[in-house]
């Protein structure tokens, strides 16, 4: 896949999008569909936050360039051309991440990778909002995953064993 043109520095107004954009970069090779929808979420949310100041407009315009380039590159992928298929793809991926981390948790295996999986699952559930309102189940999973990631991270940082 051709490399995307880099984005300008992230405007401070868009700080809340930095994790979703980083997740997009991390998935460019691993799962381009997930990477595409993470950017779409950042684009849509960024436009709601600030599409007026020149710095933000410039950033959003470059992000849109990336999205258009990706859509062209992935044009034969149904998960890109049909959002209903894309939604199922992102949801399955988020659930897989969640279940991996949850299994590790229940087996008492606490490590950085499982913390990241919990957190990434929560970010991808944010991404699902581009397709419409979240289900109650997704909202519960997001809350639980974010709480678990923070809790286990703090335990490991303080040398404590998570309960």
């Amino acid at each position: 896949m051709a490399a995307l043109a880099p984005l300008p520095p992230l405007p401070p107004q868009f700080k809340s999008l930095q994790h979703h954009l980083r997740t997009a970069q991390e998935h460019d090779k691993r799962d381009p569909v997930v990477a595409y929808y993470c950017r779409l979420y950042a684009m849509q949310t960024g436009m709601k936050i600030d599409s007026k100041t020149p710095e933000c407009r410039k950033f959003l315009s470059k992000l849109m360039d990336q999205l258009e380039a990706l859509k062209k590159q992935l044009g034969d992928n149904e998960a890109i051309t049909q959002e209903i298929v894309g939604c199922a793809h992102v949801e399955n991926y988020a659930l897989k991440m969640f279940l991996y981390a949850d299994n590790e948790d229940r087996a008492g295996r606490f490590h950085k990778n499982m913390i990241k999986s919990f957190y990434t699952a929560s970010l991808l559930i944010d991404v699902l909002t581009v397709f419409g309102e979240l289900t109650d189940e997704n909202m519960k999973h997001r809350k639980y995953a974010r709480w678990k990631a923070t809790y286990i991270h703090n335990c490991l940082k303080n040398g404590e064993t998570p309960q």
Partner: peptide
């Protein structure tokens, strides 16, 4: 300032239109 606001608004519309096209909503 009126014309600056007009340019900003037009650019905003352009972004909205590109987003709608991207999502096949036009």
């Amino acid at each position: 300032t009126g014309s600056v606001a007009t340019v900003a608004s037009a650019e905003q519309d352009e972004l909205s239109q590109r987003l709608a096209r991207l999502r096949d909503q036009v």
